[in-house]
Simulated assay, not measured.
Amino acid sequence: MSSTVDQNRLLQGGVELWRNAQWRVTSDVLEEVPGHGDYWISASEVHDPMWPDHMAEKNWVDQGLFMEALTKARELHPPRPSQSATATACGGAA
Results as ranks from 00 to 15, higher is better:
Pro34Arg: 12
His77Ala: 05
Glu45Tyr: 10
Gln12Glu: 15
Thr26Cys: 05
Asn8Cys: 06
Ser44Leu: 13
Ala87Gln: 06
Ala21Phe: 01
Cys90Asn: 13
Val46His: 04
Gly14Val: 00
Arg9Gln: 13
Gln22Lys: 05
Gly91Asn: 12
Gly91Pro: 06
Glu68Thr: 06
Lys72Ile: 05
Asn8Trp: 07
Lys72Gln: 15
Ser44Cys: 08
Asp38Ile: 01
Gly35Lys: 08
Thr88Arg: 15
Glu16Cys: 07
Arg24Val: 01
Ser84Ala: 14
Gly37Glu: 08
Leu65Asn: 06
Gln22His: 12
Asp38Cys: 08
Glu68Ile: 01
Glu45Val: 00
Thr26Leu: 02
Thr88Gln: 14
Met1Ala: 12
Ser2Ile: 00
His54Ser: 13
Val29Thr: 08
Met1Gln: 09
Trp40Asn: 09
His36Trp: 04
Val15Ala: 10
His36Val: 03
Arg74Thr: 03
Lys58Gln: 15
Ser44His: 12
Pro78Val: 05
Trp23Arg: 02
Ala94Phe: 00
Gly92Cys: 07
Trp18Phe: 06
Asn8Tyr: 09
Ser2Trp: 06
Glu31Pro: 01
Gly35Gln: 06
Pro79Ala: 06
Ile41Pro: 04
Lys58Pro: 00
Asp48Ser: 13
Arg24Tyr: 04
Asp53Cys: 03
Lys58Thr: 01
Ala89Ile: 00
Ser3Cys: 01
Val15Leu: 11
Leu65Cys: 04
Pro52Glu: 11
Asp6Ile: 00
Gly14Asn: 10
Trp51Asn: 07
Asp28Lys: 09
Gly64Trp: 03
Asp28Phe: 11
Gly13Asn: 07
Trp51Gly: 04
Cys90Met: 12
Pro52Trp: 09
Glu75Lys: 13
Lys58Leu: 14
Ala85Tyr: 01
Leu10Trp: 05
Leu30Phe: 02
Glu75Met: 10
Gln12Cys: 03
Gln7Asp: 14
Val29Trp: 03
Ser42Ala: 15
Glu45Lys: 13
Ala89Cys: 05
Met67Arg: 15
Ala73Ile: 01
Thr4Arg: 14
Glu32Ser: 03
Ile41Phe: 07
Ser42Trp: 10
Trp60Asn: 08
Asp62Asn: 15
Ser2Val: 02
Arg19Leu: 03
Met67Val: 00
Thr4Val: 06
Pro52Tyr: 10
Cys90Trp: 10
Ser27Tyr: 07
Ala73Glu: 03
Val5Ile: 12
Val46Ala: 07
Asp28Gly: 07
Gly92Ala: 10
Ser44Lys: 14
Ala21Leu: 10
Gln83Ala: 12
Met55Leu: 14
Arg80Cys: 02
Glu32Asn: 03
Met67Asn: 15
Glu68Asn: 13
Ala93Gln: 14
Glu32Thr: 05
Asp6Arg: 07
Gly37Asn: 09
Ala93Ile: 01
Thr88His: 09
Gln12Arg: 11
Ser2Asp: 08
Ala21Lys: 15
Asn20His: 04
Cys90Ala: 15
Asp6Ala: 09
Glu31Asn: 07
Gly14Asp: 14
Lys58Glu: 12
Arg80Gly: 09
Gly92Lys: 05
Thr86Tyr: 11
Thr26Glu: 06
Val15Glu: 15
Met55Gln: 10
Ala93Cys: 00
Ala43Ser: 15
Trp23Gln: 02
Gly91Glu: 09
Val5His: 06
Ala94Ile: 00
Ala21Asp: 14
